[in-house]
Design a protein around this nucleic acid. Structure first.
Lengths: 242, 242
DNA sequence: TTTAATTTGTACGTATGTATT
DNA sequence: CAATACATACGTACAAATTAA
């Protein structure tokens, strides 16, 4: 058994089906009995079966269509969940003390990259920050951040003493929408020097664009030495073959 | 409004609350009215409100505790969903024709790395494969794969003509559990030559360990030139401050 | 093309269980 | 130990989508 049995009928049903799918008793394309049928088998209400099935569908194990019924989904890839924690938490979880240093802080007025990425007009000022995050004495992450001062003007005068810019932004605009991209790039001379790795070293890069109501708030690049950094993903669901 | 309004009462309620959270009307730590209260406000049953709230909780926007009630969650990071498609689909989606080449195929009998990673005893045979996936004429992904022949003995005699090894494994054992890790590393001479990039080039690496009932099936490393490859993650939910 | 039958999707109102204060 | 608010479940009803006649 891959998950522990549970008291809740809906979880029992869900886990039973999951076992049958994983064991190969139910193969992709096979029909799963109707909700009504399963309800009678287990002696529960249809709503209870429905919840089990809905969750299995959300997790990608089955596909459901009205009138057509429920079938085991065709596997065509995988979907995983990735947690991107606050650097501070990530570092302190390892036991190392956290601190950060602001390496650069500029108001850019004619920066085409920042203006394009934040979707602001020319001559709109943009705050650029370069921050180095330390795990103990080791540089852990180099952060390159652009902030849209049009949306968050108070960032201009912030000292970022207790909270680093990311933490401060989260306090200010907690529930902005974000878009992430992960990639690998070679460290240039400046990045290598900051992170204390040779130029050319492979860096693991997380990019994040944060917006609220179609207004860009900030764009950030988080660079990690590839030798020491790895991002873990927890198995979440399966994606269908389309 | 960030999501379109919907006919379903539970979605209306969910979106309404989401708007209030995003707009800052409801700040982290704030209490959300009781299910009963909201139900009366909207003139719906409590179960309807419950579903909206449960989904908001699953997505990380609120935290619920019996007796204590529901509060807007403290933001402490982000959780994103990453789709890892089949290489074939990924490449064909760009319009390029897909093909693959098996560069190496060995039965390893005394390979400590393969035995350790697949958790098999010494002298247990392990199938090692090196596969190059092409998008048109460009090498797109270099795949290094170890297969546990104890669990999947038929892999030994497979020709991998129509289906590549990954596709074949998915057909054979569709619903195995997987664990992923993403990282960056510098290409060694061999990897660089295969992928047609200079030695030292930053590679984006996806590692996957696949198991069924605590038995390791396969371990694979998928290497992509960092210049061209980026992995997109879709905003999924927010993780709490713990 | 229209209609009917089937199956999932949502909702209701009530009831009981359970963790937490 | 009691009260509270969430968690699950029941049985029924109707809506929506899709297939089949």
């Amino acid at each position: 058994m891959t998950e522990r049995a549970s008291a809740s009928p809906y979880l029992t049903i869900k886990n039973d089906l999951l076992s049958q799918i994983r064991s190969g008793q139910l193969r992709p394309g096979d029909a799963v009995p109707h909700e009504e049928t399963i309800a009678q088998q287990y002696g529960v209400a249809r709503a209870t079966v429905h919840r089990a099935m809905r969750e299995l569908a959300e997790e990608g194990f089955v596909e459901r269509k009205r009138r057509a019924g429920t079938r085991v989904a065709a596997v065509g890839g995988r979907t995983t969940k990735v947690d991107i924690a606050l650097v501070r938490d990530e570092i302190e979880r390892t036991g190392a003390p956290y601190r950060f240093e602001i390496l650069k802080r500029d108001i850019l007025s004619g920066d085409p990259f920042g203006q394009r990425i934040l979707r602001v007009d020319a001559n709109q000022p943009v705050l650029y920050l370069e921050i180095l995050h330390f795990a103990g004495e080791r540089p852990y992450q180099l952060e390159e951040r652009w902030i849209n001062l049009d949306v968050v003007p108070s960032a201009e005068t912030q000292s970022f003493q207790a909270s680093n810019p990311n933490e401060w932004l989260i306090e200010t605009i907690p529930y902005a929408e974000a878009e992430h991209k992960f990639s690998a790039q070679n460290a240039n001379a400046h990045q290598g020097a900051a992170l204390d790795v040779p130029e050319g070293e492979a860096l693991f890069v997380i990019e994040r664009r944060t917006a609220l109501d179609a207004k860009m708030i900030t764009y950030v690049r988080m660079l990690h030495p590839g030798q020491t950094y790895a991002m873990a993903a927890t198995d979440f669901s399966l994606s269908t073959k389309n």
